[in-house]
Every structure is written in structure tokens, then in C-alpha cells.
Design a protein around this nucleic acid. Structure first.
Ligand code: FES
Ligand code: FES
Lengths: 151, 151
DNA sequence: CTAATAAAAGATGAAAAGCTCTTTTATTTA
DNA sequence: TAAATAAAAGAGCTTTTCATCTTTTATTAG
């Protein structure tokens, strides 16, 4: 696993995809999202249901239904997704797994780790959910493995 | 979970502890290590056996036996432990979980994430296993939760 | 109002991570 | 050589994560 759980990785990719597809109106179905980010459909459905309940995306049932986002969500930070899925440990937790990270009783790598943690926090708080629509449209950024490309 | 797996967190704390206790010679038993870093003894034993097999620590059976490290190990980077336990995904993996991280087909957060990944790599490669013995001796750095300290 | 659509919810299961307990093997010291 | 010591190895359990399949509910177009 990487820095984020697999669930959280799917969540971020999916929300980027939905933002990209519906920023100008409309909805996108679960099948299309799963295909677009290369994730297991039924598993992703669970994740999106949860994000929808928490207000990180929006959804509508029935014909022409699907997932979508509004202006407010487009301006929310990536951190909203990560916190909803993985919790806030990544912003506050100790790099060596001590029960709590503290300035008074720091673990050996506390200072260096804190800098990294802050940089992660910065990335997640300043990156807006809708911030990559242009890159995604232009194909400069991708949300799944591109074919015919070694390494 | 944090950036590293729980197993990896235990491993790093344990190796720091062993380095601290045996840098001047001698061995330290599994019970003392488990107590010293506040980890489950039998689970930690498995982790240390594995690290020993991989040459990240040394061990001796019988009376006066236990775990220890030599000069060579004291100068090895923290990265050796992390790689042995969690693999090298943390050095190369994509922040959004794409199959591979690539400059040609980057995910939306590729550039910012790469900077973070490099900083983690830098921390793990420049931090020596024996680099904190002084701090640990002086009590300036700790390897388990300190008692009677709120937050 | 009905049929079609699409998300929501429920039930279940596989795999990995985390953890415990018991037995065996190697070493030392007396 | 016998007893004590301590890691190594083996077997197995619990929880969490990741994933699939089926049924239900809400919505909409006709
Ligand atoms: S105490 Fe470990 S990172 Fe702060
Ligand atoms: S492609 Fe995602 S971090 Fe490089």
C-alpha cells in the first residue's frame, strides 16, 4: 500500500473523474466511473455511496441519474475525501506509530517527519477537487493506466 | 494506518531500541525490546526474526543471547528496514494508486506528490540506524508513549 | 401508471494484516 | 553432560481491507 489506503486512492480518482465529467452539468453512472478509473465497479459503488452520504459528492437515482458535483464541491480540497475515507491520522499521526505525536516527547524522526506530514497536508488542503479538469480534458493528466506504454 | 504499516513502525522502533542498547556491545532479549517499545512480544518476535534473516539486525541463541547490531548496521539507513518490511512502493508508487507512476502519463497530483515522495526517501536514506543513540540516552527522543503526559 | 433506469442497501466471501500460543533448535554455563 | 536460556519455527486465530453478487428503493420518461 502507498500513503493512502486503496479505498482512498479509488475515492480520489473517482471524485476527480466525476468532477471532470460533470463540472458543466449532467451526471455520470457508476459503470462509466469504474471504467474510467479502472476500479472494481461494485466496490467503488460502496465507496461512492459513502462519499455521497458525507456530502463529498452528490447522486441521483433513476434514468439520467448518476453521480455529480456542484460548484461548492468543485472548490472543496482533496483533504475532504482523504479525511472521509482514511480519517485524519495522516495529518497528526506519529511516523513511528507512537500513540500520539508530541513536541515534548518526540520520537527520533519527529522533526523530519513533521515536515513531510505538513507537506502532505499542504498538498491535500490546497488541491481543489475541480482543480484538474483542464488537464484531464487535455489528456495531460490521467486517472488510469494508459495502454501500450512500457513502464 | 500511517505512512508505514504497523509492522514497519514496530520494526523501526525495535531496531532503534536494539541499536541504542547494544551499540557498545552486549545483546538484548525480545522481552526487553517489546517492553521498551510497547509492542506485542510474540508478534515482534516474528518481525525481528525476519529482519535478522535479512541482515538488518543480528541475533544469537542461548544464555546471553538476544538481538544486537554491529558497526556496519549502525551505519545503515532507516530505508533498509522499511524496504525489508513494506517493500519499495513508498519510493516509487503513485499517490493515486495508478499501476505505475510516470512522467509521461502523470496523475493529477504527480508533481506535488513526487516532491513528497522524494522527501520521504531523503529522510529514510539519510537517517542512520545508529543515529539517535545519543538522543535516546539523554531521553530527548522516546520510543514509546510516556506516562502521565496528557496529549 | 408502468416499465426502465440507476443508485442504495444487504449479505457474503476472500485475502491480507495483525496478533497469540506452543514446540523446537541452538547455545552456554555450570 | 545436564539444565537453563533465548531465539526460531510452526500452527492457528482475529480483525480489517478489499471485493462480489443480489435485492430493494427512488426517479423519470413514456
Ligand atoms: S512523535 Fe513521531 S512524528 Fe512526532
Ligand atoms: S503518476 Fe501519480 S504520483 Fe506519479
Amino acid at each position: 500500500m502507498g500513503i493512502f489506503s486503496k479505498t482512498c486512492e479509488y475515492a480520489m480518482r473517482a471524485v476527480f473523474f466525476i468532477a471532470h465529467k460533470t463540472a458543466g452539468g449532467g451526471r455520470v453512472g457508476i459503470k462509466e466511473v469504474a471504467l474510467g478509473i479502472d476500479s472494481p465497479e461494485h466496490f467503488l459503488a460502496k465507496i461512492l455511496q459513502d462519499l455521497s452520504r458525507r456530502g463529498v459528492i452528490q447522486s441521483a437515482k433513476g434514468p439520467n441519474g448518476g453521480f455529480y458535483v456542484d460548484e461548492v464541491i468543485l472548490n472543496m480540497p482533496l483533504a475532504s475525501i482523504v479525511e472521509a475515507v482514511d480519517g485524519s491520522d495522516i495529518f497528526t499521526g506519529c511516523g513511528l506509530g507512537l500513540e500520539y505525536c508530541s513536541e515534548e516527547n518526540p520520537c527520533p524522526i519527529h522533526h523530519e517527519f513533521k515536515a513531510i506530514r505538513n507537506q502532505i497536508q499542504d498538498l491535500l488542503k490546497t488541491t481543489k477537487i475541480g482543480g484538474f479538469n483542464k488537464e484531464l480534458n487535455m489528456g495531460i493528466a490521467v486517472l488510469k493506466k494508459q495502454k501500450n506504454l512500457p513502464q
